[in-house]
Nucleic acid binder design. Structure first.
Length: 137
DNA sequence: GCCAACGTTGGC
DNA sequence: GCCAACGTTGGC
């Protein structure tokens, strides 16, 4: 089992959209590094769902339910999607500042590569973020 | 709304 | 194949 983080602008595709839609394609990735990460995903892997720009916080967890295939919205045929479905909402959202201020998360790709939209998360980072969520509020 | 960071494109 | 120009992302 591997862990990931997926970024989305909530105005384009939000957690609520994901919940409403159930299982859906994670499409629109047009960056090779992000694509390569999509290709490494397996069924059952879990991904944090991060709202960028307006909220800058991790709001929930989605599960990979179908492994990569060609992105039908990509005319060049170079990029891929996976299918994900909402698994659970975090007890409390974890915002970017909390992640930045946590020394255990100082090497997280979210900070190191702020523009990457699909990134791997280590099990330690995953657990730490879950901990922050449980202790929030 | 600005702009730094950074990925991509295209001319040479 | 290099690199300047350009476009986009996303934090601030």
């Amino acid at each position: 089992m591997k862990y990931w983080l997926l970024k989305s602008e909530p105005s384009a595709w939000s957690w609520n959209d994901q919940v409403k839609e159930g299982s859906s394609m994670w499409d629109g990735v047009r960056n090779y590094q992000a694509r390569n990460n999509l290709k490494k995903m397996s069924i059952g892997d879990l991904c944090f769902f991060y709202h960028s720009v307006t909220e800058k916080s991790i709001i929930g967890i989605v599960e990979v339910v179908k492994e990569f295939y060609t992105d039908p919205t990509d005319k060049t045929g170079k990029f891929v999607v996976v299918d994900v479905k909402a698994k659970k909402k975090l007890k409390n959202s974890v915002n970017l500042l909390q992640i930045k201020n946590n020394s255990k998360l100082k090497n997280i790709a979210l900070i190191k590569q702020s523009r990457l939209s699909v990134m791997p998360i280590s099990i330690k980072e995953w657990d730490e973020i879950i901990n922050i969520s449980l202790n929030n509020g």
